[in-house]
């Protein structure tokens, strides 16, 4: 698909009917605010063959919100998160995508800020603070410019703005069944020398659910990923700052 200037908010969904309305509402609010700034956008949901009634909710989505472009891509069989995200990237109408998992929510007021940062810097990946909400006190994720310790453990969530051509040129998300596709794409972008930018503002809210996927990455998989990328001269960057920090109202901050 030809990708024009603008933003597609991409929600991959698999059996998250209970959480979808929260994510969708935040996305639509964000898109309306972008529209007010003259930026084109769409909400693109990729349903990965859900079996929890998500389809019934998604069928009516476009009819309920006629003021915003809403599309749903239906996958006939479950392909996994990485492949569902890649489907979204290839179907997106616009050059930038905001990756929003179905159980999270965007801070709509700040989407314009992040979009500006992505455009003004030309970053392949633009991210910002995520509040982790759950039973305990709020915590913050994705909260600083990327440092080389990302090779040991990922601390930047996939909830971010991606430059779609840059992501696809890097191979998109890993589609073999695994749970570290976010980290793997980040490493491949770094290996290609892509610009990764942190914006010191709140991008959204990360709702920690009992048994959420983020808790399940096995150590063997983590070790494997480290070995793969250790061969790529990445170990020599240890101790270095890899990403940059930018705020549209201030300019470069790191």
């Amino acid at each position: 698909m030809v990708q024009r200037a603008g933003l597609s908010i991409l929600i991959p969904n698999w059996n998250h009917r209970f959480a979808l309305p929260r994510a969708v509402r935040s996305a639509l609010d964000g898109l309306r605010r972008l529209q007010a700034q003259g930026v084109a956008g769409e909400l693109l949901v990729v349903d990965d063959a859900s079996r929890d009634g998500s389809q019934k909710y998604l069928f009516n989505l476009a009819a309920h919100y006629p003021d915003v472009a809403v599309r749903v891509v239906w996958l006939p069989r479950n392909v996994g998160l990485g492949a569902a995200r890649n489907t979204g990237l290839t179907h997106a109408a616009y050059r930038h995508a905001c990756l929003l998992d179905a159980d999270n929510a965007l801070e709509p007021a700040n989407l314009w800020l992040f979009y500006r940062a992505a455009l003004e810097t030309g970053a392949a990946l633009t991210y910002g603070n995520l509040f982790v909400l759950g039973d305990t006190q709020p915590d913050v994720l994705s909260n600083e410019p990327l440092q080389a310790r990302v090779y040991r453990q990922n601390y930047v969530d996939n909830f971010a703005l991606l430059d779609i051509p840059a992501a696809l040129a890097a191979g998109g998300y890993q589609t073999t069944r695994g749970l570290l596709e976010d980290w793997e794409l980040m490493m491949r972008l770094l290996a290609r020398g892509a610009l990764i930018v942190f914006v010191p503002a709140v991008l959204g809210y990360y709702h920690r659910l009992p048994g959420g996927l983020h808790t399940l990455a096995p150590e063997t998989l983590i070790q494997r990923l480290r070995r793969i990328f250790d061969q790529n001269e990445l170990r020599s960057r240890e101790g270095r700052l890899l990403g940059r920090m930018y705020h549209p109202d201030v300019g470069w901050l790191a």
Partner: peptide, 13 residues
């Protein structure tokens, strides 16, 4: 953020 969402928060590790 509840008050004014577009503030700057820089809270590194």
């Amino acid at each position: 953020t509840d008050w004014e969402p577009d503030g700057v928060a820089f809270l590194p590790a």
